[in-house]
Write a protein that binds this DNA or RNA. Structure first.
Length: 401
RNA sequence: GUGGCCAUAGUUUAAUGGUAAAACAUCGGGUUGUGGUUCCGACGUUACGGGUUCAAUUCCCGUUGGCCACC
Protein backbone atom coordinates (compact mmCIF):
# COMPACT_ATOMS: atom_id res chain seq x y z
CA UNK A 1 0.00 0.00 0.00
CA UNK A 2 2.75 2.40 0.94
CA UNK A 3 4.68 1.26 -2.13
CA UNK A 4 1.64 1.89 -4.31
CA UNK A 5 1.19 5.40 -2.93
CA UNK A 6 4.86 6.09 -3.47
CA UNK A 7 4.63 4.78 -7.02
CA UNK A 8 1.61 6.95 -7.73
CA UNK A 9 3.25 10.01 -6.25
CA UNK A 10 6.36 9.36 -8.30
CA UNK A 11 4.43 9.12 -11.54
CA UNK A 12 2.61 12.35 -10.79
CA UNK A 13 5.78 14.20 -9.92
CA UNK A 14 7.56 13.08 -13.07
CA UNK A 15 5.30 15.46 -15.00
CA UNK A 16 3.98 18.68 -13.57
CA UNK A 17 1.33 20.78 -15.21
CA UNK A 18 2.37 24.41 -14.83
CA UNK A 19 -0.45 26.22 -16.57
CA UNK A 20 -3.31 25.74 -18.97
CA UNK A 21 -4.63 28.31 -21.47
CA UNK A 22 -7.80 27.01 -23.06
CA UNK A 23 -6.72 23.53 -24.26
CA UNK A 24 -3.03 24.48 -24.49
CA UNK A 25 -0.97 23.30 -21.56
CA UNK A 26 2.51 24.07 -20.32
CA UNK A 27 4.39 21.81 -18.01
CA UNK A 28 7.71 20.39 -16.92
CA UNK A 29 8.99 16.83 -17.31
CA UNK A 30 11.70 15.70 -14.90
CA UNK A 31 14.21 13.32 -16.48
CA UNK A 32 17.54 11.79 -15.47
CA UNK A 33 19.34 14.56 -17.34
CA UNK A 34 17.26 17.53 -16.32
CA UNK A 35 13.94 19.23 -16.76
CA UNK A 36 12.05 19.75 -19.99
CA UNK A 37 9.65 22.64 -20.36
CA UNK A 38 6.73 21.72 -22.56
CA UNK A 39 5.50 22.03 -25.21
CA UNK A 40 8.91 21.41 -26.76
CA UNK A 41 10.37 20.26 -30.06
CA UNK A 42 13.03 17.57 -30.35
CA UNK A 43 15.54 18.00 -33.19
CA UNK A 44 16.40 14.66 -34.78
CA UNK A 45 20.05 13.70 -34.25
CA UNK A 46 19.75 10.48 -36.23
CA UNK A 47 23.15 8.90 -35.65
CA UNK A 48 24.15 10.95 -32.63
CA UNK A 49 24.33 14.37 -34.24
CA UNK A 50 22.23 16.85 -36.16
CA UNK A 51 23.72 16.80 -39.63
CA UNK A 52 26.21 19.63 -39.80
CA UNK A 53 25.58 21.11 -36.35
CA UNK A 54 27.71 20.09 -33.38
CA UNK A 55 26.23 18.99 -30.05
CA UNK A 56 27.97 21.96 -28.47
CA UNK A 57 26.26 24.37 -30.82
CA UNK A 58 22.92 22.68 -30.21
CA UNK A 59 23.51 23.30 -26.52
CA UNK A 60 24.93 26.81 -26.41
CA UNK A 61 23.62 28.45 -29.60
CA UNK A 62 20.45 26.68 -30.74
CA UNK A 63 19.67 25.93 -27.08
CA UNK A 64 17.64 22.82 -27.64
CA UNK A 65 16.30 21.24 -24.46
CA UNK A 66 16.54 17.70 -25.79
CA UNK A 67 17.68 15.64 -28.78
CA UNK A 68 16.04 12.62 -30.39
CA UNK A 69 18.36 9.83 -31.52
CA UNK A 70 17.51 6.80 -33.64
CA UNK A 71 17.91 3.36 -32.14
CA UNK A 72 17.95 1.58 -35.51
CA UNK A 73 20.97 3.55 -36.70
CA UNK A 74 22.85 3.44 -33.40
CA UNK A 75 22.07 -0.25 -32.99
CA UNK A 76 23.73 -1.01 -36.33
CA UNK A 77 26.56 1.48 -35.86
CA UNK A 78 28.32 1.75 -33.50
CA UNK A 79 26.12 -0.72 -31.56
CA UNK A 80 24.90 -0.33 -28.01
CA UNK A 81 27.63 -2.42 -26.38
CA UNK A 82 30.27 -0.08 -27.74
CA UNK A 83 28.31 3.00 -26.65
CA UNK A 84 27.80 1.44 -23.22
CA UNK A 85 31.55 0.86 -22.83
CA UNK A 86 32.16 4.45 -23.86
CA UNK A 87 29.93 5.67 -21.05
CA UNK A 88 26.55 5.94 -22.77
CA UNK A 89 25.22 8.41 -25.31
CA UNK A 90 25.58 11.47 -23.09
CA UNK A 91 29.28 10.90 -22.44
CA UNK A 92 29.92 9.59 -25.94
CA UNK A 93 28.33 12.54 -27.74
CA UNK A 94 29.08 15.16 -25.01
CA UNK A 95 25.39 16.10 -25.04
CA UNK A 96 24.51 16.66 -21.34
CA UNK A 97 20.76 17.19 -21.63
CA UNK A 98 17.95 14.66 -22.07
CA UNK A 99 17.87 12.24 -24.98
CA UNK A 100 14.79 10.50 -26.34
CA UNK A 101 15.34 7.37 -28.40
CA UNK A 102 12.83 5.80 -30.72
CA UNK A 103 12.36 2.03 -30.75
CA UNK A 104 13.98 1.37 -34.11
CA UNK A 105 10.78 -0.11 -35.44
CA UNK A 106 9.97 2.72 -37.81
CA UNK A 107 13.32 2.47 -39.61
CA UNK A 108 13.09 -1.32 -39.79
CA UNK A 109 9.93 -0.81 -41.81
CA UNK A 110 11.11 2.13 -43.87
CA UNK A 111 14.77 1.30 -44.50
CA UNK A 112 15.67 -2.36 -44.27
CA UNK A 113 15.30 -4.38 -47.44
CA UNK A 114 13.88 -7.66 -46.20
CA UNK A 115 11.62 -7.81 -43.23
CA UNK A 116 9.40 -10.38 -41.65
CA UNK A 117 6.96 -9.50 -38.94
CA UNK A 118 6.14 -12.19 -36.37
CA UNK A 119 4.74 -12.29 -32.88
CA UNK A 120 8.30 -12.42 -31.60
CA UNK A 121 9.46 -9.24 -33.38
CA UNK A 122 10.64 -7.78 -36.66
CA UNK A 123 13.27 -9.61 -38.66
CA UNK A 124 15.25 -7.40 -40.99
CA UNK A 125 18.42 -7.03 -42.98
CA UNK A 126 20.73 -4.11 -42.35
CA UNK A 127 20.65 -1.48 -45.09
CA UNK A 128 24.39 -1.05 -44.50
CA UNK A 129 25.81 -4.55 -44.92
CA UNK A 130 22.80 -6.81 -45.45
CA UNK A 131 23.34 -8.67 -42.18
CA UNK A 132 20.29 -10.30 -40.62
CA UNK A 133 18.89 -9.05 -37.30
CA UNK A 134 15.88 -9.65 -35.11
CA UNK A 135 14.37 -6.63 -33.39
CA UNK A 136 12.19 -7.86 -30.56
CA UNK A 137 10.51 -5.64 -27.97
CA UNK A 138 13.07 -6.86 -25.42
CA UNK A 139 16.03 -6.14 -27.73
CA UNK A 140 14.72 -2.66 -28.52
CA UNK A 141 14.40 -1.84 -24.81
CA UNK A 142 17.82 -3.31 -23.97
CA UNK A 143 19.36 -1.24 -26.75
CA UNK A 144 17.74 2.00 -25.61
CA UNK A 145 18.50 1.25 -21.97
CA UNK A 146 22.18 0.58 -22.58
CA UNK A 147 22.53 3.52 -24.94
CA UNK A 148 21.57 5.54 -21.90
CA UNK A 149 18.32 7.06 -23.12
CA UNK A 150 16.23 9.25 -20.81
CA UNK A 151 12.96 8.64 -22.61
CA UNK A 152 12.49 5.20 -24.11
CA UNK A 153 9.83 4.38 -26.67
CA UNK A 154 8.10 1.00 -26.93
CA UNK A 155 8.51 -1.04 -30.09
CA UNK A 156 5.37 -0.71 -32.16
CA UNK A 157 4.14 -1.47 -35.63
CA UNK A 158 3.30 1.62 -37.66
CA UNK A 159 1.04 0.58 -40.55
CA UNK A 160 1.09 2.82 -43.62
CA UNK A 161 -1.74 5.28 -44.28
CA UNK A 162 -3.73 3.20 -46.72
CA UNK A 163 -3.96 0.08 -44.52
CA UNK A 164 -7.35 -1.56 -44.06
CA UNK A 165 -9.31 -1.25 -40.85
CA UNK A 166 -8.94 -4.99 -40.23
CA UNK A 167 -5.17 -4.80 -40.59
CA UNK A 168 -4.91 -1.77 -38.33
CA UNK A 169 -6.97 -3.52 -35.66
CA UNK A 170 -4.73 -6.61 -35.73
CA UNK A 171 -1.66 -4.39 -35.80
CA UNK A 172 -2.63 -2.31 -32.78
CA UNK A 173 -3.24 -5.47 -30.77
CA UNK A 174 0.25 -6.68 -31.64
CA UNK A 175 1.55 -3.26 -30.64
CA UNK A 176 -0.17 -3.65 -27.27
CA UNK A 177 1.35 -7.11 -26.67
CA UNK A 178 4.76 -5.74 -27.62
CA UNK A 179 4.21 -2.73 -25.35
CA UNK A 180 3.56 -5.04 -22.40
CA UNK A 181 6.79 -6.94 -23.12
CA UNK A 182 8.63 -3.60 -23.33
CA UNK A 183 7.25 -2.53 -19.94
CA UNK A 184 8.30 -5.84 -18.38
CA UNK A 185 11.77 -5.78 -19.92
CA UNK A 186 12.52 -2.27 -18.73
CA UNK A 187 11.27 -3.05 -15.24
CA UNK A 188 13.45 -6.14 -15.20
CA UNK A 189 16.55 -4.22 -16.31
CA UNK A 190 15.98 -1.45 -13.77
CA UNK A 191 15.44 -3.90 -10.93
CA UNK A 192 18.54 -5.84 -11.90
CA UNK A 193 20.54 -2.62 -11.69
CA UNK A 194 18.88 -1.71 -8.39
CA UNK A 195 17.33 1.46 -9.79
CA UNK A 196 14.68 3.01 -7.57
CA UNK A 197 11.69 4.87 -8.94
CA UNK A 198 13.02 8.28 -9.96
CA UNK A 199 16.32 6.76 -11.09
CA UNK A 200 14.81 5.09 -14.08
CA UNK A 201 14.46 6.21 -17.66
CA UNK A 202 10.90 6.99 -18.69
CA UNK A 203 8.96 4.63 -20.93
CA UNK A 204 6.31 5.85 -23.36
CA UNK A 205 3.54 3.81 -24.96
CA UNK A 206 2.38 4.50 -28.52
CA UNK A 207 -1.28 4.82 -29.48
CA UNK A 208 -2.05 3.34 -32.90
CA UNK A 209 -5.41 2.87 -34.64
CA UNK A 210 -4.99 4.76 -37.90
CA UNK A 211 -7.82 7.07 -38.90
CA UNK A 212 -10.46 5.16 -36.88
CA UNK A 213 -11.64 6.95 -33.77
CA UNK A 214 -12.82 3.81 -31.98
CA UNK A 215 -9.59 1.94 -32.71
CA UNK A 216 -7.57 4.86 -31.37
CA UNK A 217 -9.58 4.78 -28.15
CA UNK A 218 -9.19 1.01 -27.91
CA UNK A 219 -5.44 1.25 -28.39
CA UNK A 220 -5.17 3.93 -25.70
CA UNK A 221 -7.28 1.92 -23.24
CA UNK A 222 -5.10 -1.16 -23.70
CA UNK A 223 -1.93 0.86 -23.13
CA UNK A 224 -3.30 2.60 -20.04
CA UNK A 225 -4.02 -0.76 -18.54
CA UNK A 226 -0.30 -1.55 -18.76
CA UNK A 227 0.71 1.89 -17.54
CA UNK A 228 3.35 4.16 -19.04
CA UNK A 229 5.17 7.35 -18.08
CA UNK A 230 3.88 9.08 -21.17
CA UNK A 231 1.69 8.44 -24.18
CA UNK A 232 2.55 9.04 -27.81
CA UNK A 233 0.32 9.30 -30.86
CA UNK A 234 1.93 7.17 -33.55
CA UNK A 235 0.96 6.29 -37.08
CA UNK A 236 0.06 9.84 -38.02
CA UNK A 237 1.05 11.47 -41.32
CA UNK A 238 2.15 8.18 -42.81
CA UNK A 239 0.19 8.67 -46.01
CA UNK A 240 -3.22 9.95 -44.91
CA UNK A 241 -4.71 13.22 -46.08
CA UNK A 242 -3.99 16.45 -44.23
CA UNK A 243 -7.59 16.63 -42.97
CA UNK A 244 -7.42 13.07 -41.56
CA UNK A 245 -4.20 13.96 -39.74
CA UNK A 246 -5.87 16.96 -38.12
CA UNK A 247 -8.93 14.91 -37.20
CA UNK A 248 -6.98 12.12 -35.50
CA UNK A 249 -5.10 14.68 -33.40
CA UNK A 250 -8.33 16.43 -32.46
CA UNK A 251 -9.96 13.17 -31.37
CA UNK A 252 -7.16 11.60 -29.42
CA UNK A 253 -5.25 14.51 -27.87
CA UNK A 254 -7.95 15.36 -25.27
CA UNK A 255 -8.28 11.67 -24.30
CA UNK A 256 -4.61 11.15 -23.46
CA UNK A 257 -4.05 11.09 -19.67
CA UNK A 258 -3.75 14.67 -18.49
CA UNK A 259 -1.23 13.83 -15.78
CA UNK A 260 1.29 12.38 -18.26
CA UNK A 261 3.31 13.86 -21.10
CA UNK A 262 1.71 13.61 -24.53
CA UNK A 263 3.92 13.13 -27.56
CA UNK A 264 2.89 13.48 -31.21
CA UNK A 265 5.39 11.40 -33.15
CA UNK A 266 6.97 12.65 -36.34
CA UNK A 267 5.02 15.86 -36.89
CA UNK A 268 5.23 18.24 -38.45
CA UNK A 269 4.89 21.47 -40.37
CA UNK A 270 5.01 24.60 -38.16
CA UNK A 271 1.25 25.12 -38.38
CA UNK A 272 0.58 21.46 -37.47
CA UNK A 273 2.72 21.75 -34.37
CA UNK A 274 0.95 24.91 -33.20
CA UNK A 275 -2.39 23.20 -33.90
CA UNK A 276 -1.49 20.09 -31.91
CA UNK A 277 0.06 22.08 -29.07
CA UNK A 278 -3.15 24.07 -28.83
CA UNK A 279 -5.04 20.80 -28.45
CA UNK A 280 -2.79 19.75 -25.56
CA UNK A 281 0.23 17.95 -27.04
CA UNK A 282 3.48 18.48 -25.11
CA UNK A 283 6.20 16.92 -27.24
CA UNK A 284 7.11 16.98 -30.93
CA UNK A 285 9.78 15.74 -33.26
CA UNK A 286 10.14 16.03 -37.00
CA UNK A 287 12.78 15.84 -39.70
CA UNK A 288 11.16 18.65 -41.65
CA UNK A 289 13.27 21.58 -40.41
CA UNK A 290 16.55 19.81 -41.16
CA UNK A 291 15.59 17.76 -44.21
CA UNK A 292 13.80 20.61 -45.96
CA UNK A 293 16.73 22.88 -45.18
CA UNK A 294 19.07 20.46 -46.94
CA UNK A 295 16.69 20.55 -49.90
CA UNK A 296 16.59 24.35 -49.93
CA UNK A 297 13.33 25.20 -48.12
CA UNK A 298 13.35 27.49 -45.10
CA UNK A 299 10.69 28.92 -42.82
CA UNK A 300 10.70 32.65 -42.13
CA UNK A 301 8.81 35.01 -39.89
CA UNK A 302 6.07 37.21 -41.30
CA UNK A 303 6.64 40.29 -39.16
CA UNK A 304 8.75 41.74 -36.39
CA UNK A 305 6.01 40.81 -33.92
CA UNK A 306 6.78 37.09 -34.12
CA UNK A 307 5.40 36.26 -30.71
CA UNK A 308 2.20 38.19 -31.42
CA UNK A 309 1.78 36.41 -34.75
CA UNK A 310 2.02 32.98 -33.10
CA UNK A 311 -0.34 34.07 -30.33
CA UNK A 312 -2.89 35.36 -32.81
CA UNK A 313 -2.67 32.03 -34.63
CA UNK A 314 -3.38 30.27 -31.33
CA UNK A 315 -6.32 32.62 -30.74
CA UNK A 316 -7.73 31.69 -34.13
CA UNK A 317 -7.29 27.98 -33.39
CA UNK A 318 -9.92 28.16 -30.66
CA UNK A 319 -12.51 28.34 -33.45
CA UNK A 320 -10.93 26.32 -36.27
CA UNK A 321 -9.56 23.42 -34.21
CA UNK A 322 -13.12 22.43 -33.29
CA UNK A 323 -13.68 21.63 -36.98
CA UNK A 324 -10.21 20.03 -37.17
CA UNK A 325 -9.10 22.88 -39.45
CA UNK A 326 -6.22 25.34 -39.56
CA UNK A 327 -6.67 29.13 -39.44
CA UNK A 328 -6.57 30.87 -42.81
CA UNK A 329 -3.89 33.37 -41.90
CA UNK A 330 -0.42 31.97 -41.34
CA UNK A 331 2.34 33.27 -39.07
CA UNK A 332 5.24 32.31 -41.35
CA UNK A 333 6.45 32.32 -44.95
CA UNK A 334 8.35 29.74 -46.97
CA UNK A 335 11.52 30.66 -48.85
CA UNK A 336 12.98 28.34 -51.48
CA UNK A 337 16.56 29.42 -51.70
CA UNK A 338 17.09 27.98 -55.20
CA UNK A 339 14.38 30.20 -56.71
CA UNK A 340 15.65 32.52 -59.43
CA UNK A 341 14.09 35.57 -57.80
CA UNK A 342 16.84 35.50 -55.16
CA UNK A 343 19.63 35.68 -57.73
CA UNK A 344 20.43 39.34 -57.04
CA UNK A 345 18.93 39.59 -53.56
CA UNK A 346 21.54 40.56 -50.99
CA UNK A 347 19.10 40.78 -48.06
CA UNK A 348 19.16 38.09 -45.36
CA UNK A 349 16.94 35.01 -45.62
CA UNK A 350 14.80 36.25 -42.75
CA UNK A 351 15.09 39.86 -41.67
CA UNK A 352 13.18 39.07 -38.45
CA UNK A 353 15.42 36.19 -37.37
CA UNK A 354 17.71 37.23 -34.56
CA UNK A 355 20.04 34.28 -34.07
CA UNK A 356 23.73 35.00 -34.23
CA UNK A 357 24.76 35.04 -37.87
CA UNK A 358 21.24 35.19 -39.27
CA UNK A 359 22.00 38.47 -41.07
CA UNK A 360 25.55 37.54 -42.01
CA UNK A 361 24.88 36.48 -45.60
CA UNK A 362 22.55 37.64 -48.35
CA UNK A 363 20.19 35.26 -50.13
CA UNK A 364 22.15 35.62 -53.39
CA UNK A 365 25.28 34.24 -51.73
CA UNK A 366 23.49 31.40 -49.90
CA UNK A 367 21.72 30.54 -53.17
CA UNK A 368 25.07 30.38 -54.93
CA UNK A 369 26.58 28.17 -52.21
CA UNK A 370 23.49 25.95 -52.38
CA UNK A 371 23.76 25.58 -56.15
CA UNK A 372 27.42 24.65 -56.07
CA UNK A 373 26.60 22.21 -53.27
CA UNK A 374 28.79 23.79 -50.64
CA UNK A 375 27.94 21.97 -47.44
CA UNK A 376 28.10 25.17 -45.45
CA UNK A 377 24.90 26.35 -47.13
CA UNK A 378 22.97 23.25 -46.03
CA UNK A 379 24.21 23.72 -42.48
CA UNK A 380 23.30 27.40 -42.50
CA UNK A 381 19.76 26.65 -43.65
CA UNK A 382 19.38 23.77 -41.15
CA UNK A 383 20.49 26.08 -38.40
CA UNK A 384 17.97 28.68 -39.52
CA UNK A 385 15.05 26.24 -39.50
CA UNK A 386 15.98 24.81 -36.10
CA UNK A 387 16.10 28.32 -34.62
CA UNK A 388 12.75 29.02 -36.23
CA UNK A 389 11.16 25.89 -34.76
CA UNK A 390 12.57 26.38 -31.27
CA UNK A 391 11.61 30.05 -31.24
CA UNK A 392 8.10 29.06 -32.29
CA UNK A 393 7.92 26.62 -29.35
CA UNK A 394 8.99 29.43 -27.02
CA UNK A 395 6.07 31.57 -28.23
CA UNK A 396 3.69 28.64 -27.77
CA UNK A 397 4.85 28.35 -24.16
CA UNK A 398 4.40 32.07 -23.56
CA UNK A 399 0.77 32.07 -24.73
CA UNK A 400 -1.83 33.71 -22.49
CA UNK A 401 -5.41 33.68 -23.66
C1' G B 1 45.66 24.91 -101.51
C1' U B 2 44.06 19.36 -101.52
C1' G B 3 41.61 15.31 -99.09
C1' G B 4 38.84 13.33 -95.01
C1' C B 5 35.62 13.59 -90.60
C1' C B 6 31.88 16.26 -87.98
C1' A B 7 27.50 19.76 -86.92
C1' U B 8 20.98 16.97 -82.61
C1' A B 9 18.50 20.63 -75.60
C1' G B 10 22.67 25.41 -72.05
C1' U B 11 26.64 21.10 -72.02
C1' U B 12 28.21 15.97 -73.27
C1' U B 13 26.27 12.32 -76.15
C1' A B 14 22.06 8.63 -78.32
C1' A B 15 18.70 7.18 -82.19
C1' U B 16 15.78 6.35 -86.68
C1' G B 17 13.46 7.28 -94.21
C1' G B 18 7.42 7.85 -90.55
C1' U B 19 5.34 12.40 -83.90
C1' A B 20 14.05 13.00 -81.38
C1' A B 21 16.30 9.82 -76.11
C1' A B 22 19.46 10.13 -71.83
C1' A B 23 22.75 12.30 -68.34
C1' C B 24 24.25 16.75 -66.26
C1' A B 25 22.95 22.04 -65.98
C1' U B 26 18.78 25.51 -65.57
C1' C B 27 13.66 26.53 -63.90
C1' G B 28 9.28 25.12 -60.77
C1' G B 29 7.18 21.88 -57.08
C1' G B 30 7.35 17.88 -53.23
C1' U B 31 9.49 16.11 -48.53
C1' U B 32 6.16 14.78 -41.59
C1' G B 33 8.80 8.48 -35.25
C1' U B 34 15.85 11.33 -41.47
C1' G B 35 19.07 5.48 -46.39
C1' G B 36 23.64 13.07 -45.81
C1' U B 37 24.56 13.61 -52.29
C1' U B 38 16.44 13.06 -52.33
C1' C B 39 11.88 12.57 -55.35
C1' C B 40 8.45 14.59 -59.27
C1' G B 41 7.65 17.84 -63.33
C1' A B 42 9.11 21.62 -67.22
C1' C B 43 12.52 23.21 -71.13
C1' G B 44 14.39 21.01 -78.73
C1' U B 45 11.50 24.89 -85.51
C1' U B 46 18.05 17.99 -85.09
C1' A B 47 23.82 24.64 -88.09
C1' C B 48 21.87 27.26 -92.80
C1' G B 49 19.93 26.89 -98.03
C1' G B 50 18.26 23.69 -101.80
C1' G B 51 17.11 18.64 -103.88
C1' U B 52 15.11 13.31 -103.92
C1' U B 53 10.61 11.19 -101.42
C1' C B 54 3.77 10.36 -99.70
C1' A B 55 7.30 11.49 -95.65
C1' A B 56 14.29 13.87 -94.40
C1' U B 57 17.26 14.79 -88.16
C1' U B 58 18.47 10.47 -91.34
C1' C B 59 19.86 10.07 -98.46
C1' C B 60 22.13 13.83 -102.29
C1' C B 61 24.25 18.93 -103.56
C1' G B 62 25.81 23.55 -101.83
C1' U B 63 26.90 27.37 -97.78
C1' U B 64 28.91 28.41 -93.10
C1' G B 65 31.59 26.81 -88.89
C1' G B 66 34.87 23.25 -86.35
C1' C B 67 38.55 19.19 -86.15
C1' C B 68 42.37 16.03 -88.54
C1' A B 69 45.91 14.72 -92.36
C1' C B 70 48.85 16.07 -96.53
C1' C B 71 51.22 19.87 -99.77
Amino acid sequence: MVYLELKMKESIDMFELLDQQKTLRTGVIHTLHGDLYSPFFMPVATKGSIRGISPNEMLTEVQSQILLMNTYHLYLRPGYEKVRKLGGLHTFTTWPKPILTDSGGYQVFSLSKIRKLTEEGAEFRSHIDGSKHMLTPEESIRTQYYLGSDIIMVLDECPPGGSSRAYIQKSLELTTRWARRCREELDRLCEADGRQAGERPLLFGIVQGGIYEDLRKESLAQLQEIGFDGYAIGGVSVGESRSDVLKVIQWIAPLLPSDKPRYLMGLGKPEEIVYAAFLGIDMFDCVIPTREARHGTVYTWKSADKEGDVHRYLDALEETSQQAKLPAESFFDIVRIQNEKHEYDMTPIDCYADWKGADQYGKAYIRHLFQVKEHVALEYLSRHNLYFYLEMMQYIRSYKS
